[in-house]
Amino acid sequence: MKWTRAIYIYMRLMTQHIKAILEYQSDFWIAMCAAMMTQGLGIIFIGVVFSKIPHVVGWGFWEIAFLYSMVFISEGVSSFLFNGIWNIGGLVNRGDMDRLIIRPLPVVLQVGATAFGMNGLGNMLFGSIFLTLSVINADLNWSWWQVLLLIIFALSGVTIRISVNLVTNSVSFWSQGPRNSLPMMVHTAADFVKFPLTIFPLTVQLLVSIIVPYAFISYYPAAFLFGKGDGALLGLLAPIVALLCISLAVAMFNRGLKKYESAGN
């Protein structure tokens, strides 16, 4: 199957979800507002901190806001378009994966299309607004190549986020339990990269750089764009890390799929 065709079908599947969700308008607005509020309060937190102090380890308010926005955007796009990944556990446990395997479309894409994260839209919206604001307010002369890099960094961040979710959720192929708490826990580890990595001890730095490479979503790209010494050049690796992550994640998913044996009799 050609990948353009696959993407076309994916979009069609997602559109059906959107139609279904728009049927429940109050639900739509509650999810949107909840997401915006969650992120807004996060920004208020750093606002409060920075109202008392001008810099934390050399990073100003808008630079930290940049880190936050990159995390929000990666979170937003991955839950908006690929929220279905979180269903892998349920699909395996109930044997519903059968239905997806027999269809002529990559199973990874179908799994991604089993759900649609309304709150992702709020995250994306809020993340983009704050990214724009922090880009304008951060003390930098932006040229075209930096803007181009920023877009590449954002795309890499989204890819890394999706890959990590795919890996942690694919664990369900092996554990087969109905509930898999690992994804949620790894998900919270993104809290670490909302701040300059240098404030954390080496173990945490290595953890979010190598094992769960969240640092390539926000910190390394920011360090590169703002020229913040330590690890600045690593920022350029973000797209490579992203490609590596997604190929590993898809490979692991497919491995798991081979191991998958339906539920019951």
Binding site: Y24, D27, T38, L41, I44, V48, M118
Partner: peptide, 24 residues
């Protein structure tokens, strides 16, 4: 009133964390 609880719970957590003083 909603079909999914994650958004509501996340917002609840965020509000509680800020206004309870957990963050600052």
């Amino acid at each position: 009133y909603t079909t999914s609880h994650l958004g509501v719970l996340w917002a609840r957590t965020a509000i509680t964390n800020l206004f309870s003083g957990a963050l600052v």
